[in-house]
């Protein structure tokens, strides 16, 4: 192979950016739809906004096969242990989108039985505001998450960084 051919056939990059590129363009979302936002999330997947364009069309209803938890709807005190369990069942690396006012803050449901924001108990990466958020908003949130994942360091996941 002559040197000019090598140049046009080989791409150099860092391991980190290659991994991040793969991760951020192939999310496998696990929708945790407990209320109206779950219905709106279906519209995100449907033809008009079509989440598949962002590589996130493989919706998994098993936490063990997914890496992106989308909390769509209000979480009651009875549901919170379930959500924590599901989050813990997801393998690393994993990310969380809190979709809508209820998941992010309890929304209008300021009562004894509704969790006032799931981020009190599980780590949330992106909050999508709205009641419900428009599908475009969810897509924007997903793109924000792609930016975040693109900036991750491999050392973020090493046990040595356990602080």
């Amino acid at each position: 192979m002559n040197p000019t051919e090598i140049k046009s056939n080989i791409l150099t990059t860092t391991l980190e950016s290659a991994i991040n590129w793969g991760r951020k363009n192939s999310f496998w979302p696990m929708p945790f739809g407990t209320a109206c936002c779950g219905i709106e999330f279906m519209a995100v997947l449907a033809a008009r906004t079509d989440l598949a364009r962002f590589g996130a069309e493989a919706i998994r209803f098993s936490p063990r096969q997914s890496d992106l938890l989308i909390v769509a709807g209000r979480i009651s005190i009875k549901m919170m242990p379930v959500l924590i369990r599901i989050y813990e069942q997801m393998p690393e690396p994993k990310w969380v989108i809190s979709m809508g006012a209820c998941a992010s803050s309890g929304g209008v449901f300021d009562t004894y039985s509704v969790i006032q924001g799931v981020d009190q108990f599980i780590p949330v990466d992106v909050y999508v505001p709205g009641c419900p958020p428009r599908p475009e908003g969810v897509v924007e949130g997903l793109m924000k998450l792609q930016d975040l994942v693109g900036e991750e360091k491999l050392s973020d996941y090493s046990p040595a960084s356990d602080k």
Binding site: Q120, F121, S161
Partner: peptide
Amino acid sequence: FPVVNRGIR
């Protein structure tokens, strides 16, 4: 509720 801590930076 318990707070989930992943031990990740």
